[in-house]
Simulated scan of single mutants.
Amino acid sequence: MVWVIDNVVSLAENFATAAGVDPLSTVLILVGVLLILASSAVFGGLATAGLLEGFVPDTAFERQRRERDRT
């Protein structure tokens, strides 16, 4: 577990160093982070919807026709 924490700290230091070198590097890192966050959010939403679909009955979204009273 210590190695994981050490690796995360060194990863953050490496990204900070890369982002501080050039303004274009900062923009590219931010664009990469936004792409990863957006794709993770979409995947999480789809996975959650897929898991919750099993709890919703199939007739929940079907429209029921009512019989007209022909009197």
Rank of each mutant, 00 (worst) to 15 (best):
M1W: 10
M1G: 06
V2Y: 08
W3S: 00
W3L: 00
V4T: 02
V4A: 00
I5D: 06
I5M: 00
I5C: 02
D6T: 01
N7I: 02
V8D: 03
V8K: 03
L11H: 15
A12R: 10
A12L: 11
A16P: 10
A16M: 13
T17A: 12
T17W: 15
A18E: 14
A19N: 03
G20Q: 05
G20K: 04
D22W: 07
L24Q: 06
T26Y: 13
V27L: 10
V27Y: 11
V27S: 09
V27M: 11
L28Q: 09
L28Y: 09
L28T: 07
L28M: 10
L28P: 04
V31P: 05
V31I: 10
V31C: 06
G32H: 11
V33E: 05
L34V: 03
L34K: 00
L37P: 00
A41H: 01
G44R: 05
G44M: 03
L46V: 15
L46H: 14
A47T: 06
A47F: 10
A47E: 04
A47Q: 06
T48C: 05
T48E: 05
A49Q: 03
A49N: 01
L51Y: 10
L52R: 03
L52H: 02
E53C: 04
E53V: 04
E53L: 08
G54N: 03
G54C: 00
G54Y: 07
F55T: 00
V56H: 09
P57Y: 02
P57I: 00
D58N: 13
D58K: 14
T59H: 14
A60E: 15
A60C: 11
E62A: 12
R63E: 11
Q64F: 15
Q64D: 09
Q64Y: 15
R65N: 11
R66G: 03
R66E: 13
R66F: 15
E67P: 11
R68H: 14
D69A: 08
D69S: 12
D69R: 12
R70W: 09
